[in-house]
Design a binder for these strands. Structure first.
Lengths: 208, 208
DNA sequence: AAATATATTGAACACTGTTCAATTTCAAAT
DNA sequence: ATTTGAAATTGAACAGTGTTCAATATATTT
């Protein structure tokens, strides 16, 4: 039955069309300005079509979230995978996270700030697997730092992972939400990375 | 001219009426569900009245932001003001910040996450003075820790203040936005505070 | 009592997410 | 070739949103 397969392909094509139009609008105009009607107009379909492919708007945004995780966060871990030194890898991951976060504020919001994505997961009674996966990579890296002798053996990887994640998330989100303007710095981003490096040296010193 | 003063009082009374109704709805239903019409209905006025007192919705939310800062953040610094030991004061401030943030997620969003407040300030070409004030208190506290011998003299208070702020903001915002559910902990809040204490001990050890 | 100034209204505009009966499209069965 | 049935698609409708503004009501001054 090749016909059913073709139909399924056509269905998926429309879904992809919706998603890429949504992504374009979302990146250009942000969460607040991404409307069902704008997406529908862009792909020259009726607004109703979107509800044949997604339960609601949150569900559509969750699909964008998934794509962002797939493309970017996984790429981040891949890009440092070849670094043999676990501590250097840990440091580079954080720097890459910050850089990605400030370069892609819309995606970052979707993944780590907006409630709609977590609500869409809750409706489907699903777990935030993308997030869990990323944190596991981080914890694994911390364990490797312990095994390599960089970190004491009596530390708790869960706690350290939360400290590291909170630090970089704090930096990115305060920056993206314009809260760092109160630091009258000539180069705000350089100030962030400098502070992150200080943080890293504190980690290294106190955990060794 | 007592009449003009009375008129001004009446104007302010309506403004306060709007603000307290807005605050009630905002706290109960959150940012997304706080509408001009809901506020107007609650105080039994026409929707248009709000625009006699506020430029737009962002401006109204900025007024709520100001109140939240006035009531809570200033209270936080006051509550620790009497602690003679600067390091203990610094630690307590962070703990108080986290506690306030997770106890008052709506206010926290208004102050440190939402863009609407910073946009309202930008329109008025104003500076985020509330934020700057709070960070200055923090920096002052860090300087006192240096003077008391807790911290090395060669550290940069700006960088350390950003590290401290990012850490607690990261914890609160990840928690409030449901991102910490991936840590399958029996008591998530206890895990946060435990991690914060580990962070503090790291700070203390590495900066001394 | 008339004129002025201010406060307040509520309809209108252009949007929003979502639903659903009606329509179109198209492959399968007769 | 025509009917049947199922799927895809539509677009109007509903209830909501922020915002504007001419019209109205209220209160003060002349």
């Amino acid at each position: 039955m090749g016909i059913n397969e073709r139909k399924e392909r056509e269905r998926d094509a429309v879904k992809d069309l919706i998603l890429s139009a949504a992504r374009e609008i979302f990146l250009a105009e942000g969460y607040e300005n991404t409307s069902i009607r704008k997406i529908a107009t862009k792909i020259e379909y009726s607004p109703g079509i979107i509800y044949n492919h997604f339960k609601d708007k949150n569900d559509l945004l969750l699909a964008l979230h998934d794509k962002a995780f797939e493309c970017k966060i996984e790429a981040l871990f891949l890009s440092v995978q070849n670094m043999p030194d676990p501590l250097e890898r840990l440091k580079a991951t954080g720097r890459g996270y910050i850089q990605y976060g400030i370069d892609n504020p819309q995606d970052y919001e979707l993944m780590f700030i907006l409630s709609c994505t977590m609500e869409a997961l809750a409706v489907k009674e699903e777990f935030w697997q993308d997030g869990a996966m990323a944190i596991n990579m981080l914890k694994q890296n911390i364990v490797e730092c312990m095994e390599a002798g960089y970190f004491r053996k009596d530390i708790n990887p869960d706690e350290i992972s939360l400290i590291l994640w909170s630090q970089v998330h704090g930096l990115v989100s305060l920056h993206n939400k314009e809260r760092l303007n109160i630091y009258a710095m000539e180069d705000q981003k350089a100030f962030m990375f400098r502070s992150y490096d200080v943080f890293l040296s504190m980690i290294q010193k106190s955990l060794s």
